[in-house]
Simulated scan of single mutants.
Amino acid sequence: MAPFGIRVAFAVYEGVWASTLYPAADVLQSVNLRQLTGTFSWNIVTPTEQSVVSYSGQRMTGDATMMDSGRYDWVVLPHFWGDFDRALEVHPQVAHWLQRQYQSGALIASVNSGAFWAAQAGLLQGRRATAYWRHIPALKQQFPNVEWLEQQGLVEDAGLYTSNGQNAGMDLAMHLVERVCGAEMASDLARDITFDSRRDYDLTLFNMAGFRHHRDDNIHHVQNWLDKHFAETVSFRALADNAGMSKSTFLRRFERATGEKPTRYLQRLRVEAAKHRLINSDDNIKAISINVGYRDFSYFSKIFKVITNLSPKRFRERYRPR
């Protein structure tokens, strides 16, 4: 096989739900066929050379093992069924392998209970994450140093992605495709593959995940505040004071961490919120403008077009599910 650009590892362990693994692989293959080039390659990676038994009873053999020295760009942790303490006994290799992959620069993405493995590896300590609501109590008890967001379908924090179910897992795959191939490719795939593309959770914060691939915790805290208050009047001097910095230091550190000036970041956050509402609601566009923090509709339209290359009206016409 010819060399590929992005190497993806699908971790497979006892009780894995194949339905949270193969759809993502199909998405990556769809990209390869549309691009007419090897954008992605992927391996099924098992803890050892022994095969594992999936939730549905299939015996699954890996292309590689966690004992190998291979490095991946993305690691996907599918949902599994069973007691996690028992899973740890059976697969003691997983946590160390995840630590090694993350330290080497891999993005770690979990579907539902796959978050147990990321938390066990210590990767989520002091960070935000999500999982299916039934698992949240156990996760809170076992990993109290993680901020578990029960109502959020998708969460990203410092290159660690978590999702709360199969639909969210598909959105996760689409988001990762968008990072590499752009919004148009991801949108085209979504229309062809995920016909029920309206979600009852908001993808705004998840779509801003690319600006969180840094390790500056003070700036993460500022971003957390903006996630909740972006529609309000924002004082960057007050944010700097709360972060214990001068305004000039804050502006410099924010841009160094995120790659964007705070004002531009706030604009992007508001536009992402508007995009979600344009696709998933019937709200009037002027009302959407006000709800995301813009009283001046013409200014909102100008900023929206600068960031998306489309007017709000054209964006809704193009991307709203038909």
Rank of each mutant, 00 (worst) to 15 (best):
D192P: 00
D157N: 15
A118Y: 01
G105Q: 08
G126H: 09
G70K: 14
W148N: 04
G57C: 05
Q152G: 01
A138V: 10
F80P: 01
F84N: 02
A115M: 03
N112W: 04
V180E: 11
G182N: 05
W148K: 00
Y132K: 07
P47Q: 01
T65G: 06
A158F: 02
Y161C: 12
Q50F: 01
P144R: 09
T61M: 10
G114H: 03
G114K: 06
K140M: 10
E89T: 13
R134D: 08
E184V: 13
L176K: 08
H79F: 07
V53K: 13
R191P: 00
G126N: 08
Q141N: 12
E89M: 13
V111E: 00
V52D: 04
L88S: 12
Y72V: 00
A64V: 12
L149P: 00
V111S: 01
H79V: 00
V111L: 02
W81M: 14
T61A: 12
L172Q: 10
R59C: 10
L189D: 01
Q125M: 11
V53H: 10
G82F: 07
H79I: 00
W148P: 02
D192L: 08
H175T: 09
Q142L: 15
M174N: 05
G62W: 05
W117I: 09
E184M: 03
N164V: 01
L123D: 09
T162R: 06
M60Y: 13
H135I: 01
D157S: 13
I193N: 00
D68P: 12
R128E: 01
G182R: 05
G169Q: 08
F116C: 10
L123M: 09
V155C: 04
M185R: 06
W117S: 08
Q101N: 12
G122H: 10
A64S: 15
G70S: 14
V75N: 09
Q125K: 15
R59I: 02
L107Y: 11
A183Q: 06
W133L: 07
H79C: 09
V180D: 02
S163D: 05
Q103C: 07
R100P: 00
D73S: 12
S110I: 01
G70F: 11
I136K: 03
A183S: 11
L149F: 03
A158N: 12
D63G: 14
A173H: 04
A190Q: 11
A64Q: 14
A106W: 04
S54H: 07
V75A: 12
G57Q: 03
L172F: 07
V53I: 14
R127C: 10
D63T: 11
A186M: 05
L176H: 08
G165E: 08
N145I: 00
A129N: 03
V146F: 02
M174H: 13
R179M: 09
R59V: 12
L107F: 09
Y55K: 15
L88K: 15
L139S: 05
Q58P: 00
M60V: 15
W117K: 07
F80Q: 01
A129L: 02
S187M: 03
Y55L: 08
R86P: 00
R191K: 10
Y102W: 15
F116Q: 04
I193E: 00
S104V: 03
L176A: 07
Q152L: 06
R191M: 07
S104Y: 11
W133G: 06
A106L: 03
V111N: 05
T61I: 13
L149K: 04
R191N: 05
P144S: 10
G62Q: 03
W97G: 11
P144F: 06
V76P: 01
